[in-house]
């Protein structure tokens, strides 16, 4: 990062001479070094997948959740600092609940993403605040069908067909670009995400797959992918990896 040691990086209230807000860049950096998170908008729904590095042998399985439902029709996956991410999750929950209470209808995806983005953005405006070290992926299902959004630490929100953030994003994006997403079902999307996460994962430490989706199979509600489906995807991904390893040898 060019800014290191050149000043202008102590607060989000000061631009650098070349027009950057270094604190925001550093927050993005915190996301970039975190576990990979992938989202795919398939033809019948959205799948979100996280690579959760197992930091200790004594860690309980399934702890350190990274995907969260924020309403029945919307959910988030958080990349980067998970403690920061949970703050965003809480805000998203109350935005969804407020909208429902005020307008009597579930919040459309594009509005939820806008509101999360506004919230995140505020932390880039004041000297006493620190931007969130998290990018969140938002999966929604509404009148406009399934949608996938990514909101980054600067408060920018984009809608994607497929997205990847975190450590393995480069490799993951290349693979996602080759997928025919409009022909891909969520059931296959789960397998693809497992495969990509195994592909981009750096050897030594083991990792846990956390997958959530919103599609017909989950009753059009944002839910964890059932354990047996994840296990099967995991098995297939490992088999594919072994196969390609043998090809390499």
């Amino acid at each position: 990062m060019s800014g290191i040691g050149t000043g202008y990086d102590l607060s989000v209230s000061t631009f650098s001479p070349d027009g950057r807000v270094f604190q925001t860049d550093y927050a993005q950096k915190a996301v970039d070094i975190g576990g990979t998170v992938i989202g795919l908008r398939c033809n019948d729904g959205v799948v979100l997948g996280c690579e959760k590095t197992v930091v200790s042998k004594m860690l309980e399985e399934g702890s350190n959740k990274r995907t969260f439902a924020v309403d029945r029709h919307a959910g988030l996956a958080i990349a980067g600092l998970s403690a920061d991410g949970r703050q965003v999750v809480n805000r998203a929950k109350s935005e969804a609940s407020n909208y429902l209470s005020f307008y009597g209808d579930k919040i459309p995806g594009h509005l939820l993403s806008e509101r999360i983005a506004s919230f995140v953005h505020v932390f880039n405006l004041y000297w006493y605040a620190r931007p969130f070290g998290t990018s969140v992926m938002l999966a929604t299902m509404d009148r406009a069908g399934p949608q996938l959004y990514v909101i980054d630490p600067s408060g920018t929100a984009y809608r994607y067909f497929g997205a990847a953030v975190g450590k393995g994003r480069q490799g993951a994006r290349t693979t996602i670009e080759r997928l025919k997403l409009e022909q891909l079902s969520c059931a296959d999307g789960v397998k693809e995400i497992a495969k990509i996460l195994h592909q981009v994962h750096e050897e030594e430490k083991p990792f846990e797959l956390e997958l959530s989706w919103i599609c017909e199979a989950s009753g059009n509600e944002f839910r964890r992918v059932p354990a047996d489906v994840v296990a099967e995807a995991d098995r297939l991904a490992k088999a594919a990896l072994d196969e390609s390893d043998m090809d390499d040898d």
Binding site: F68, A69, R72, K93, S97, S101, E221, R223, R224
Partner: peptide, 11 residues
């Protein structure tokens, strides 16, 4: 319903 949705989100 708000409480039930909270329960749903806990998953």
């Amino acid at each position: 319903d708000e409480l039930t949705t909270d329960d749903f989100c806990e998953d």
